[in-house]
Design a protein around this nucleic acid. Structure first.
Lengths: 256, 256
DNA sequence: CTCGTACTGCGTACGATGTACAATGTACGG
DNA sequence: CCGTACATTGTACATCGTACGCAGTACGAG
């Protein structure tokens, strides 16, 4: 049950790694057999295929074909590797030019691109970055995404806050989606089996007298979405609310 | 680096634990020396005081004064303990009657109450619940919070979606706040020291030609908030946007 | 009362993980 | 050509969750 946390260790060292600034050493001794990118790429592929829990130093080492401890000549530790993995994914996100479109379309597209990021790399939503990995990928992403608010009239401080707001929403939705996916797979039970096993106790305990609203709303939401929770529905609903909320700030009162 | 995940194991067993339904056994053998609540309370206090990483089975056992393996007579495993800890905190949240207030005030108060939850129990935002712990605390919370949308005209499905939307926002903001707090404490460096150490490399690498918007906006946001990121500001900004977004849905076009 | 049985409590131990450390080998600079 | 800095790696340790089995205890049936 590892708590995958990034951003530890010496920040300056991490920055140099992110920007691929080699140490200024006199270049002596044997040449490295692999590159930093080899390690990062292997780690990302492993995380994509088998989840963050599968990303152990030993497993990454095996994937790149070296002994476990050899990784530590490329990376100070696992936290830094996670930073590099994140920045790697950020740097590979698509950034099409949308300067002609209205801000709502641009922000919706921005959200969709981030949603796709978390779809391709579900682990990226789990990694807790005590400090964001200030690498080239994050910078390119930040630069690109800020431009989505061009022409909105937002000042710089509000623009940053608005972007944070959108990104946090997408990340939260992605986390919920990942949690649902995990729950569905970890117990092989279908929803029907689950209800058959737990229905009796739930019926006894979810007293309609005590929780009238909760029971009614939960049942309505569950049956409408054919599941206890629908990540897609939550995303669509939330995005509409995000855009409307920004719309009030940007356009004044106007519905979407 | 434990990945604190709840919701594993037999869901029916977990449900019985959450609702404190004793096994229907013939009650033979020695009486338990502690209660389930003893364990849960100790675990919560430990998590509050020293963070989720400090919540190891051994540490909890020591806190309640038993051997580590003894915990497993009360709880099937650590995942279930986390479920119980969450539900315990939910059940103790304040739920004042706000039926007289307008929906914006009620939803803002709901958000503030959840923010306070994560302030008192920062670990609660980190726990990833593959399935939410459907216990009495969560039910009471859900029932109470749904009532905040009474009189808004939202149908049950939208009401559930709206609540999820608000709660996800508060949780995301709390996560960000906790990450900042962690970053500030784990490297004892002040922001000034950090900039002194990393400024030169950052200045070299954060090219204003390449990232004009990012550098400008980042600087503006940083100096306005006297920090690279201000959780309080992000919360205030986000909450206003959340309320405006819901306002468009509920009241039609109208600014806050 | 007696005894089997179900239960609590827990000591030991195992596998997994991140990584510290020191030994070994290699290739470049003087 | 040789010293030195570096890449590589085997071993080892601390920490974690928890499986397993034994010892002791108290209730119900006889």
């Amino acid at each position: 049950m590892p708590n995958h946390r990034s951003g530890a260790g010496d920040p300056a060292r991490t920055l140099r790694l992110l920007w691929r600034q080699p140490e200024e050493s006199p270049r002596r001794g044997p040449r490295p057999g692999r590159s930093l990118d080899d390690i990062v790429t292997a780690a990302v592929e492993l995380a994509d295929a088998e989840g963050l829990d599968a990303v152990t130093m030993r497993a990454v080492a095996q994937a790149v074909g070296v002994a476990p401890m050899t990784l530590y000549t490329y990376v100070p530790g696992k936290a830094e590797l996670l930073d590099l993995m994140l920045d790697h994914c950020y740097s590979r996100m698509p950034r099409p030019d949308r300067s002609g479109e209205p801000w709502r379309a641009r922000v919706a597209a921005l959200a969709a691109e981030n949603r796709e990021l978390f779809h391709a790399h579900p682990w990226a939503a789990e990694v807790s970055t005590s400090r964001p990995p200030l690498g080239p990928g994050l910078m390119a992403k930040y630069e690109y995404e800020l431009r989505a608010f061009d022409g909105t009239g937002l000042d710089d401080v509000r623009r940053d806050a608005a972007l944070t707001y959108v990104l946090d929403f997408v990340r939260a939705a992605a986390r919920s989606a990942a949690e649902v996916r995990l729950a569905r797979q970890q117990d092989s039970w279908s929803d029907e089996q689950w209800w058959a096993a737990n229905g009796p106790l739930l019926a006894q305990v979810l007293d309609e007298q005590r929780y009238p609203t909760a029971v009614r709303v939960g049942a309505a939401a569950g049956s409408a979405q054919h599941a206890a929770y629908s990540p897609d529905h939550a995303y669509e609903f939330g995005l509409a609310r995000v855009l409307d909320g920004l719309g009030v700030l940007i356009d004044g009162a106007r519905t979407g």
